[in-house]
Simulated scan of single mutants.
Amino acid sequence: MLGVVLLLLSPLSWRMGEIDLPVEYWWKQAFLVLLLLFIFYTNQSFVVPRVLLKGKTYTYLLMAIIGGILFYFIIVYFEQLIQYPLRMHETFNPDRPFDPKRRWIPGDVFQEMLYLLSVGLSTSLALVQKWQKDEEHRQELEKQRIKTELSYLKAQINPHFFFNTLNNIYSLTNLDVKKAQEALLKLSRMMRYVLYENQKETTLLSKEVDFIRDYIELMKMRLTDKVKLHIQLDEADDNHIIAPMLLLPFLENSFKHGISSQKESDIYIKLEIMGNTVFFETRNQIFPTNPDSPEAKEHGIGLVNTQRRLSLLYPGKHRLKFGKDEENQEYYVNLTLNLE
């Protein structure tokens, strides 16, 4: 399009009176367009990728300069071959003698500018294409990295969950066989959720809430009267989706570290749904644990992993705060999650 505008249409706008341009002029223009096209695509497809993008900057600049010189002499040779200077002189200056050694300097400068424009545009195009390919490759690597990392994080969460749950059921077998059987039934339903839903990228929020309820009911079976649960879970519809088992580590930590065998304790669990936003909160007392126990060593593993999952799956769409409230001697977790 640029060649058509500059080399073919523009001359038609400055035809002088009844003077018709000689056919040699159009031959020269057509040759110039083809030559510039050859330079454009050769530079874009071969020279830039194999020279400039390989770090050979000075070699590329030298090739561009040599190319400009060759471009000039090729045009001069073609003009002499078709007798272009003579025909243009006869058209515009028929009363003056023709000097074959005399060149029209502005025309030569204009042609060299076209050469530089062709090289510049083709170089820019090649660099943009290289940047696009690198960006696509980077995004693909980032997707694979995130996918691998999420699989690793979920693999850490699942054994963490089953370890605690099986310990609970094992404790019930020595106290109440019927409750242990009920716990196994609930665990089997939860396992189906873990095996099928956790393999997906997302699941219905309603299924996640049902999973939370089952988990809480399972925990209730081993709690004594010293533990008071304050549960508030909103009903979820089927219009919202969420990453599976995203909230489980918060629940695990509440039951694992907020219960004492000697003192009374309170656990607060709240899930509120407002439009596309989910507000999740847990609070529990802080009871010291044996620093050599497995619980102490595993403390925070699920919470840290979930924090990482949130940063990968919901960048800019979540706000997570957790820590110790020294005034009330409580550990709290506040999560605000936008599911849009």
Rank of each mutant, 00 (worst) to 15 (best):
E18Y: 09
I82W: 07
Q329D: 15
E264W: 05
P94M: 09
E340Q: 11
W14D: 09
L310Q: 03
S118C: 09
L127Q: 10
L21T: 05
V5C: 09
I19Q: 12
L21V: 04
A155W: 06
A183I: 06
I69V: 15
E201F: 02
L70R: 02
F40L: 08
P106N: 08
I105P: 01
K143T: 13
T57L: 10
K207H: 13
G67K: 02
T59D: 08
S206C: 08
D266S: 07
D292S: 12
R192S: 13
P11Y: 12
D20Y: 08
K270Y: 11
D176S: 14
T165F: 06
K297W: 07
Q111C: 10
K324H: 14
K200I: 02
I216P: 00
E140S: 13
E235Q: 12
P288I: 06
T306G: 01
E272M: 09
Q329H: 14
A296P: 01
K101E: 13
T91R: 04
E208L: 06
V177C: 05
A30K: 00
L2T: 11
E112V: 13
P94S: 08
D210N: 12
T123S: 14
I259R: 08
P100M: 09
I273K: 05
I269R: 01
I231V: 15
L320N: 00
L313Y: 01
R192T: 13
K101P: 01
A243Q: 02
S265I: 04
D95F: 10
S206L: 08
I212L: 13
L81P: 01
I231P: 00
Y152N: 12
P159C: 05
I75Y: 06
I242M: 07
V76R: 12
Y152R: 14
L233D: 07
Q144I: 09
G107S: 10
I269G: 01
H230Y: 07
K270L: 09
K270W: 05
N338V: 08
I69S: 06
R15I: 12
P249D: 10
I267Y: 05
I216Q: 07
T203P: 01
N168T: 13
I69Q: 03
W104I: 13
F73D: 04
E264L: 04
K207F: 06
L81W: 14
R138K: 15
L62T: 11
M63S: 10
L153P: 00
K321G: 03
G68E: 04
M221F: 05
I259V: 15
I231F: 05
Q129P: 01
F71T: 05
K178L: 10
N93A: 11
F73M: 02
K147H: 13
L172C: 04
D20S: 13
Q83K: 14
Y268F: 15
Y314M: 02
L251S: 02
K147E: 15
D234W: 06
P315G: 03
I19V: 15
L187V: 07
H137G: 15
G302N: 05
V177F: 10
I146E: 11
T91S: 14
L187F: 13
T224L: 07
V119G: 01
G120I: 09
A243K: 03
